[in-house]
Design a protein around this nucleic acid. Structure first.
Lengths: 218, 218
DNA sequence: GTTCAATGTTGACCTCGGTTAACTTCACGC
DNA sequence: GCGTGAAGTTAACCGAGGTCAACATTGAAC
């Protein structure tokens, strides 16, 4: 359990808001008080430093553990999609419990059975066994200029409905797109999705566009 | 957790000794007092009746739950061997934790991915989703007469060492054998193992023979 | 500078699953 | 029929992980 908290702290640290008590509580679906107590225990275990009312910072040891948790989580997601046949919108919920009980041997088997994947179904990089993680270099679709071509890299949501919708549209990691048009005042985007002879054209709202991260192609 | 206790109770009820507190404690690797408390809770939940100092009997509801647990456990074992590439001697330990956290959806996927197996790697029948379990009709190898032909049906041990040894010998469910000779006073057995042109011959001790259950071929 | 709402923290409590130590009950040998 | 050892049970305890209610701190608005 401690490791899962660390993983979530790591994820949140790389976001603008940082890893706050209430955000952690929300993501882990527990009460804030449960989070605070766990922070104390993790601080005692030298996994992080916690300055009350200020914030939290992972120690190097804490980061190592966090990356182990993230590796496990993302490998599990790949596994559930590629081997078990779950949809990419189902895996978040499904991983929740499994993550806590799989052994290291099982993790290694998943890795092998999936062909040593480098990214999870949503496009996030999977840390290596020795704790290295590939850097990401993408931006929200909302920030891409009209006319630009790009490739979808990551999809930053756990919402099953949004994920289903994105899959329908073909907005999955690896898909090439082009921003055809953007309505004013953060209006909806018109996108060309996919390559080849007949790329589809779709209009998506900003709530969806914010969630899709792309790498612009020169 | 309750379901796992029920599964173990069911398994033990079909053995000569029955489901006693101490046997349960041993199989579940917990203290007898933990077992007794769980028995009380299961009795409250109308899953069984427990007469202190006498014994325990599953109610129909308890039996249903027990079979669900057993199904889950055995499916998991098949899955670990066929899909994940574990050895049949490793799966008992590996299932322990996983069993507690897999969802019903995951169970269904395992079933499908494994091709709807009917027996676990050790030869025990897998209950169906609606709670029916195939009867078994085998006997310990120790009770088979000299000269008789038989087919290995089940292997009744969780000991990794014994399982490894049995796999080496080829004494796995489905293998045809013949009892060539038996030394007096419950002495070792000489067996012909396997069919075809050159069946192997091996001598095994009674400790091993007791664990192997076979169906005699007329 | 005060106030106040949002955020963070502490404390008291619950359940679950495990433990050990002490006590009961059972059944078997004599 | 009476010990006595094994098996079963009860009681008191622990830690993990969760809750809610009360309290503390922060920072932004006025």
């Amino acid at each position: 359990m401690m490791r899962e908290y660390l993983g979530e702290i790591y994820r949140l640290q790389s976001m603008p808001e940082g890893a706050t008590t209430s955000l952690l509580a929300e993501r882990l679906e527990v009460s804030p008080s449960a989070v605070v107590r766990m922070l104390r225990r993790l601080a005692e275990a030298k996994m992080l430093t916690h300055v009350p009312y200020k914030g939290v910072t992972l120690t190097p040891a804490g980061e190592r553990e966090a990356l182990k948790s993230i590796r496990r989580h993302r490998l599990l997601e790949v596994f559930l999609v590629k081997v078990m046949g779950f949809g990419w919108e189902e895996v978040h919920a499904e991983s929740h419990g499994l993550q806590l009980t799989i052994s290291e041997a099982f993790e290694d088997r998943m890795d092998a059975v999936c062909g040593y994947p480098t990214h999870c179904p949503h496009g996030d990089p999977i840390p290596t066994k020795d704790g290295r993680i590939a850097p990401t270099n993408d931006q929200p679709l909302t920030e891409v200029g009209v006319g630009a071509s790009a490739v979808v890299r990551r999809v930053k949501t756990d919402d099953a409905g949004k994920l289903r919708y994105l899959a329908e549209l073909g907005l999955v990691p690896g898909t090439p797109i082009r921003v055809v048009n953007r309505a004013p005042f953060n209006g909806p985007l018109r996108l060309q999705i996919g390559a080849g002879a007949k790329p589809a054209e779709h209009v998506i709202g900003t709530e969806i566009a914010q969630v899709v991260r792309v790498e612009v192609v020169k």
